[in-house]
Design a protein around this nucleic acid. Structure first.
Lengths: 334, 334
DNA sequence: TTGTAGGCGTTATCAG
DNA sequence: CTGATAACGCCTACAA
C-alpha cells in the first residue's frame, strides 16, 4: 500500500503538509498544494479510511438496522438513508436481522466498537436485551417508524392514527358495520396507534368496535394469512378488513383468494403500506402509502445532526396518504 | 471510552495478555483468562474495531454494490450476502447507486481506502470509468449476476440461456408465432444470454424470430412500459411477450392494462424474475424465478474465500426455475 | 506556510 | 505463560 509518507517524499514535503494539501487547507501555498496533488495522483494514493477513523475518533459509516431488507418498506427507508448519507460522504452498513436476536447483538457491539458514527434503527421491540443494550450504549441513535419501550432517542414516524382514522372512516362511510382489523403485536406503538385510529373512526361514526374482529399479534405473510383465515371462518364474518402492514396484506389476500371470496364484493380490503404491484392486483388494492423513502432521508438528516453535535432533536412526523383503488366497496356490492 | 489498558490495569496484567485472554488463546492460564474477562465485563469493554482493523490490516466489512436496493431481486441478494457474512462476523456496507456515476466513484474509493475487506458488485456495466477503476484496484472482488466487459473476477450468475430457452419453448409449444421480447441493454451479458435462449427456443421449434419483435435497451418500469406500448401499437401485434426482468414486466403489465388488453387471451406474458405479488396479479403471472437469495449467499462465500487467501475461484452458475401460473395460453384463447 | 512529534487503540513480535 | 514495545497510517497540536 502506498501511504502518506510516500506522497510526502515524492512531493518533497512533510506528511503534515500532505494531509493539509489534500484537504485544501487554506494555509497551504497553491504551489505546494499542486505539487502534493500531483504526487498523490501519480502514486494512486488513497488515504486509509481506517487510520483516519482511528485518528479522528469518528468513522464515516452510518448504520441502519431493520427487521427485513427484502420488505420494500424498509428497502425504501434504506435507499433514502443511503442517498442522504452519500451526499455527506457517508456509507451505510445495513443490518437486516430477520428478527434474529443473535444478529441484533452483533449489531449492538458494532455501534459500541466504533465502526459506526451513528445508528438508525427499527427494532422489533420485543427483545429486551437488545433494546437495553441499545439504550445504555453510546453513539448517536435515531429511531425509525416506531419506538421500543424505554428507548430515549429521536424518532421519525408517520401520522399513523390520523391516516387510519380517515381511511377506516371511508369504510364506515361505505356502510360497513363489521370491519375487521388484523393488527400487529400489542407492544408495537405503530400497532396501537393504528388501532387507536381504527377505534376513533368507529367513534366518529357512532359505531362500536366488535372486539372479536380485531386480531392482535400478527406479522408477516403467514400472520396475515392465518388471521384472515380465522376471520373468514367466523359465523358472521366481516365485510371489510384493515391490514396492519404490507406483508400482512399479502397474506390476507392469499387467504381471501384461497376461500374464493371476491374483493370487494365479499370483502373490502384496506392496506397499510403501499406496494408497487398493488395497482396490478385483482382488483387493485386501496392502500395507505407511507413516505418510506422520506423517512430514510429524514433519519439520515437527524443522524448527521446528532453526529455534528446537536444534542436534542424533536421527533418528526411525516404524512401518509390514502391511495384509492378498487378494493373498497359497500358491503355486498355487486 | 474504556480501552484495553483499563482492562489490563484492573486485571493486573499487560495489554498483550488482555487481547490473548479475550481471544481465548491457548497460551493463557484459565485463571488469568477468567480475571481478564471479569475485568472486561465490569468495565463494559468493547475492543475498537477500527483500531483492530488498522492493526491487522483487514476490516470486517463486506461491500455490496447494486443498482437499486428497492428492487426485490437485489434486496434478496443483499439479504443472502448479509446472512452469510453475519455468520462469519462480517458486516455489510450496501451501496445502491441508482445508476449514479458519482456514487459509483465514491464506492471505488471505499474499496481502496481499506474500509472494505472485499466487494460484491453488480455494476450497470455502462460506466467505463467505474469498471476500469474497479478492475485496476486492489481487494477481493466478486461479480454478481453479470460481468461487465473487461472485468476479471469470479462471477455468480444463473443459467439464463437454458431457462429462457425452456420457457420460451413453452410459449412456442402453445402455438404462438409472434412472440415479442423486451430485452435489456445490449451490453448486459444477461440480456444477450436471455436473448440467445429466446433465439434457441425458436430454432428448436423451427421458427424464425421476427426481429421487429425484439426490443433492445429497455430497463425499469418505464422501459417496459414504453416498449410494450410500441409492441401493442404494431400493425400485427405479438400474441405473447417475454420480459427481460421484474421491473420491465411491471411496466409491460401497466401498458397492457392501459390498452385494455386481456392476459392471457390477448397477450401471454412471461416474466424473467419472480415477485412475491405475481400470484395475486390479474391473472397470476408465470415467471422465471432466479435464486436471488442463494446468489447472495454464494457471493459471500466466494468473497470470504478470496479474503481467506484463495486466489482463483471458478464462476458459479445457479439454476432458475419456471413457475407456471396463469399468464400463458394459446394465442387468441378464450 | 511548513515541519516535528506524539497519539489514536490494537495486535504482534520477541524476550523473559 | 506473560510483559514490553514497536508497528498500523493518519491527524493535529505545537514549534519553527
Amino acid at each position: 500500500m502506498t501511504g502518506i509518507r510516500d506522497v510526502a517524499r515524492l512531493a518533497g514535503v512533510s506528511t503534515a503538509t500532505v494531509t493539509r494539501a489534500l484537504r485544501d487547507d487554506a494555509s497551504v501555498t497553491a504551489a505546494t498544494k499542486a505539487r502534493v496533488k500531483v504526487a498523490a495522483a501519480r502514486l494512486d494514493y488513497v488515504p486509509s479510511a481506517v487510520a483516519r477513523a482511528l485518528s479522528q475518533g469518528r468513522s464515516n459509516l452510518l448504520g441502519l438496522f431493520v427487521p427485513d431488507i427484502v420488505n420494500p418498506f424498509y428497502a425504501q427507508v434504506a435507499q433514502g438513508l443511503e442517498d442522504r448519507a452519500a451526499e455527506a460522504r457517508y456509507h451505510c452498513v445495513i443490518v437486516s436481522s430477520h428478527l434474529d436476536p443473535e444478529r441484533e447483538r452483533h449489531l449492538v457491539t458494532s455501534i459500541q466498537d466504533g465502526t459506526l458514527a451513528g445508528l438508525a434503527a427499527t427494532t422489533v421491540g420485543t427483545d429486551e436485551a437488545f433494546t437495553a443494550a441499545l439504550s445504555g450504549k453510546r453513539g448517536p441513535l435515531v429511531l425509525v417508524d416506531r419506538r421500543p419501550r424505554g428507548i430515549k432517542a429521536p424518532l421519525v414516524r408517520t401520522n399513523n392514527r390520523k391516516i387510519t382514522r380517515d381511511a377506516v372512516g371511508r369504510l364506515l362511510g361505505l356502510g360497513h358495520t363489521r370491519i375487521a382489523m388484523i393488527s400487529g403485536p400489542r407492544d408495537f406503538d405503530t400497532a396501537s396507534q393504528r388501532l387507536s385510529g381504527f377505534r376513533l373512526a368507529h367513534r366518529d361514526a357512532n359505531r362500536t368496535v366488535d372486539e372479536d374482529l380485531v386480531r392482535h399479534g400478527h406479522l408477516g405473510e403467514s400472520g396475515g394469512f392465518t388471521a384472515m383465515r380465522e376471520l373468514i371462518a367466523m359465523p358472521s364474518r366481516p365485510t371489510a378488513v384493515f391490514c396492519f402492514n404490507n406483508l400482512v396484506t399479502v397474506g390476507a389476500l392469499n387467504a381471501i383468494r384461497e376461500a374464493r371470496l371476491k374483493i370487494p364484493t365479499d370483502m373490502s380490503v384496506l392496506a397499510f403500506d403501499d406496494m408497487s404491484l398493488f395497482p396490478l392486483v385483482d382488483p387493485p388494492i386501496t392502500a395507505i402509502a407511507q413516505p418510506a423513502y422520506e423517512m430514510g432521508l429524514t433519519a439520515a438528516d437527524m443522524l448527521l445532526r446528532l453526529i455534528d453535535g446537536e444534542t436534542t432533536l424533536p421527533d418528526i412526523v411525516l404524512p401518509s396518504t390514502l391511495i384509492m383503488r378498487d378494493s373498497l366497496a359497500p358491503p355486498g356490492f355487486t
